[in-house]
Write a protein that binds this DNA or RNA. Structure first.
Lengths: 340, 340
DNA sequence: TTGTAAGCGTTATCAA
DNA sequence: TTGATAACGCTTACAA
């Protein structure tokens, strides 16, 4: 099976030089006759030589490897984040260990140990929700960047989404489209993310001298079903509602369904804004959903970039960096139909 | 920043023994006085010693690392697969490099090179669709397992989903629920996956002496919108249809929406079966979708297990191993309501 | 029972 | 311009 892989020594022998020369030739270091360098390069190619990165890492102390520890790789959350991480890391030939803790502290600890042993250059710890967590138990000296969930140690660096800003974005857009009776249906009140989104909405409504339709934020679950039920409740409390901002695209789907059942047109009678920009959910909706994109890909990119900074020894201040959200415009907030 | 990490030498010094003794003590090898072993272990713990896995790998030729090369980490596909892979690998302290090619051959080649250099123990190449692809261009001798997309080299090993079987499952279930006028709406005809699902359905209908409602398979796109449009077409062609098997949960969502618009009850008038068991789509549907689960987690588990076999030198025959699908029962195929 | 030393595949230093 | 040689941190014969 496992045939012998050529080493610098093999290349050296074939090129008729010493191993030191091979190393210099292949890494463009030191002074070498051009002819020699060419001969070495040729020999290396002929043998299909690939430098053993373990040996390189052992010698250099750098592994060109970072790990992403995530509590959930399911669904909408982890994927755009990973994309952004790879955007930033890919250029540098940095490879990514993916570690899923499945929300289990034991697993996390286990992974942290393994990563220590593997001498990764840095670690990105990604949480699913905005909350404070204990710092990762890893060898001191290894750079760590926290994503979304931030470390309880204020000297740690964290990058996160702008949920308040997302709420503001949605609210301003609805006001600009001429809506004034805006309701809000979202996830569990015990989580910070939905509370921040609601805060963003409220701040805009306050400045405009408007009240929340239905007189309250409808906190509930992250499900379509909650969207359906809450929409009933909201419309019961405030039948003249002309817009609903939803804390997730899933909730928005449920809301839209209820509206359709009630023969209310979207956006004709009621405009709907979602949150997440979870493509299959938002684009598949009828009508397609205008929704706040939390910019997770950019979050990932920023996290990885800062991590590279730290690895390179460039100072990165502790604290939280917030990445702005943006609004994906689709039809659910389109201009009111003529005659509506 | 980067403080010095303790080595065997440090542990040896602290325990007052030699490095060789440390190694033996920590790895339970050779004959050692129990007292000495304990002293070494204590010293190691006090120093927070973690063996450098690069050095271990260099020396042993094993890195306890495998890579998963995937063409798309988006959405429903990659996540359950990765879960299964980690199920099988986790026990062994094997870490996973995640490489996303973004469907770009250049990127794939680039990743293959890097993985060669890193001396990964094995590689899982995951495609999104059932098709034949060129073998991964990697150093000979490195075990590779293909997932879903199979290698054109018949001596390579591939594990894949049972789409024919999935179609059979759906069909039998519908027949068993008393449906006889079954239509089929699915994805693009140019892909093998939807064709196989259709073949499974047809085989069952044939044996039962039944025809496909609407007289044809409705091939189209993997979108809700296609589901909506195709449902109209199907009902136009065959108004007495009493069940629709859909090639994806997204399509099924669209179908269900059209049925609701037409005041047709699901499952009362028409039963609907989806494909994928993509939780948020299928469970969020009203009514929740009965759907074929292609068992991707198991596919991942099998792939990783076979890869470990190959790495361990246990022979694994080339060819394709098919993992059975199963049916997730929800309400969209429930018993007909009384009086319907 | 323990210590010494060679070797894994690189890179880097210093001589030649 | 090139070649020896010593690290890097570990495991493992083999010697003590």
């Amino acid at each position: 099976m496992s045939q012998r892989v050529p080493t610098v020594r093999d290349v050296a022998a074939r090129a008729g030089v010493s191993v030191g020369t091979v190393s210099k030739a292949l890494n463009n270091r030191g002074q070498l006759r051009e002819e020699t360098r060419a001969r070495v390069v040729a020999a290396a190619r002929e043998l299909g030589f690939r430098p053993n990165s373990l040996a390189q890492g052992l010698q250099s102390g750098r592994t060109y490897t970072v790990a992403v520890i995530t509590t959930d790789r399911f669904g909408r959350f982890g994927n755009p984040l990973m994309l952004g991480v790879e955007d930033a890391l890919g250029a540098d030939r940095v490879s990514v260990f993916l570690c899923d803790t499945r929300d289990d502290p034991i697993r996390e600890h286990h992974h942290a140990e393994t990563l220590d042993e593997r001498r990764v250059d840095g670690i990105i710890v990604a949480g699913r929700r905005k909350q404070t967590r204990a710092p990762l138990a890893v060898a001191s000296g290894v750079p760590v960047v926290y994503v979304i969930a931030q470390s309880s140690d204020p000297s740690d660096f964290c990058v996160t989404t702008d949920d308040v800003g997302g709420g503001v974005l949605a609210a301003r857009h609805l006001l600009a489209s001429g809506r004034t009776r805006i309701g809000h249906i979202t996830g569990p009140e015990r989580f910070a993310d939905p509370r921040e989104r609601a805060a963003g909405l409220s701040s805009v409504l306050d400045s405009a001298g408007l009240d929340l339709a239905g007189g309250q934020v409808f906190y509930g679950e992250w499900s379509e079903d909650w969207g359906r039920r809450a929409a009933e409740m909201l419309l019961h409390a405030a039948p003249d509602t002309d817009a609903i901002f939803c804390g997730s695209d899933q909730i928005a789907r449920g809301v839209v369904e209820t509206l359709r059942d009630r023969r209310l047109r979207v956006p004709g009678d009621i405009a709907v804004v979602g949150f997440d920009n979870w493509e299959p959910m938002a684009a598949g909706c009828r009508p397609p959903l205008t929704t706040v994109d939390p910019n997770l890909r950019e979050v990932g990119r920023v996290a990885a970039t800062r991590l590279l900074d730290m690895i390179a020894g460039r100072p990165v201040e502790g604290g939280v960096e917030t990445v702005p959200a943006w609004l994906m415009l689709r039809e659910s907030t389109g201009v009111r139909e003529a005659g509506a």
